[in-house]
Amino acid sequence: MNNEYKPKEVKEPLFDRIFKPQVITLENGHSTIRKRSRLPLILILLVAVLIWALQMTEFRFSTITRNFPKLLDIFLKLFQPDTSFFPKVIKPLVDTIKMSILGTVIGCALALPVAVLSSSNIVHNKAVISFCRFILALIRTLPTLVIALVCALIFSLGTFAGTLAIAIFTFGIVAKMLYESIETIDMGPFEAMEALGANKFQAFWSACVPQILPVYLSHCLYCFEMNVRASAILGYVGAGGLGITINERIGWRDYNGLGTVLLTLFVVVLMIEFTSEYLRKKLS
């Protein structure tokens, strides 16, 4: 439509200005331009970073080979789980699952409106969008364990702090995944709804929500999977659940007991993952 459209001037990258592209001319006078490969530069940088990192962390392969028998010992014990310990695993395991369910539900419920407010195709106010996205980005920078620790310090030790930490973490992740999905939905039906006299809310609710809902539920399920795994360690900082038991077993060097805990966790995570994967396949 716009006949005064001007193509944007493409600025040449710095790299191409330092290392001029090679011009290959064929015998018949036709020529083509070959840009210099960036691979050598990237490789040199990578090797330099690796050498620097090795020095920084004082990582030696020899320590691993020297102490490998110790690890083997731990592993052998892990694979001979102490079945008599099993009854003591049930209660914290159930706590962990309860924490994850409640935390996921709360976090996902809060994420939906914020995700909608952060989607540039639905909200046209730039200030609102960048504010919401900034908050989400800040939340995502904080590790779950740190959030859990702070919660435990404020709200006393126990499952409440864990649930809150999971809810905050879920909120950050689901809202981000959701607004990225919302921005890819088909806005045609929304336009059609406006054309037939619906207001913004009605148009959004009947044209966009049916598209968003399956994606949203799928993100929630995915996050629940992650949360079960993540909440298993929250107890380490006193936020309830399996983590306390794990920490205790390692502290006492009871690796057979630890084996029982991990095996139970493994089975539960496996079951949840299968169910969730099945449900997510049905959703799409």
Partner: peptide, 16 residues
């Protein structure tokens, strides 16, 4: 707008 219907090239239906 209730009295004026509109049809689009890309149908604009909620396909799900």
């Amino acid at each position: 707008r209730r009295k004026v219907g509109m049809i689009f090239q890309s149908f604009n239906l909620v396909s799900r």
